[in-house]
C-alpha cells in the first residue's frame, strides 16, 4: 500500500500529543503493526525535541514532518530551521556498559532512533535541516 501524509508540529513539546494523534490516524490507514506505530512516534519525538531543546527552533517556525509507506518501506522526513545539526556525525553513542551510579542521564534518544532505522540521510539545504529516516520492517 502506498500512502503518505504531512504533519506540521509547533515547536513545543505540548504539541507531541497532536503529532501522536496524527501518526495513529495515518497508521490505521497504512495498516501499520503496533510496534511500528510505537517506533515512529518515538523517532518523531526524539528528533523534534532535539530540534526544539537544542536547535533553537521556536515561535513561528514549525517542524515539517512527512510520513510515507511504499511497499515494505517506511520513510520519515523531518525539516526544521534549527541550528545545523547532523545526527549521523554530530552525536556519539552512549556507553551502555556503565553501572547505574555512573550512567549519564542523557544521550539515549538519538541512540534509540539509530537502532530503529535502516537508513539515515542528512543535508543542510536552503537554511533548513533535512533529515530522512528509512525503515524496512514492514514485511
Amino acid at each position: 500500500m502506498n500512502v503518505s501524509t504531512s504533519i506540521t508540529m509547533q515547536p513545543d513539546a505540548e504539541d507531541l500529543e497532536n503529532v501522536f494523534a496524527a501518526v495513529e490516524e495515518f497508521a490505521e490507514r497504512a495498516e501499520w503493526p503496533m510496534n511500528l506505530v510505537f517506533q515512529v512516534k518515538l523517532i518523531l519525538e526524539e528528533m523534534s525535541l532535539n530540534v526544539i531543546n537544542y536547535g533553537g527552533v521556536e515561535g513561528d517556525d514549525p517542524i515539517d514532518i512527512k510520513l510515507k509507506t511504499e511497499g515494505d518501506t517506511v520513510t520519515i522526513e523531518i525539516k526544521d530551521v534549527g541550528q545545523p545539526f547532523d545526527p549521523i556525525k554530530d552525536a556519539p553513542d552512549p556507553d551502555l556498559g556503565l553501572p547505574l551510579e555512573q550512567r549519564p542521564i542523557g544521550g539515549l534518544g538519538l541512540y534509540l532512533v539509530r537502532t530503529m532505522v535502516d537508513e539515515m540521510h542528512y543535508k543542510w539545504h536552503d537554511g533548513r535541516n533535512h533529515l530522512t529516516l528509512i525503515t524496512r520492517r514492514l514485511a
Binding site: E46, G109, L112
Partner: peptide, 8 residues
Amino acid sequence: YISSAGLR
C-alpha cells in the same frame, strides 16, 4: 509509550 525523556 515511553521516550528517552521518560527513561531519563
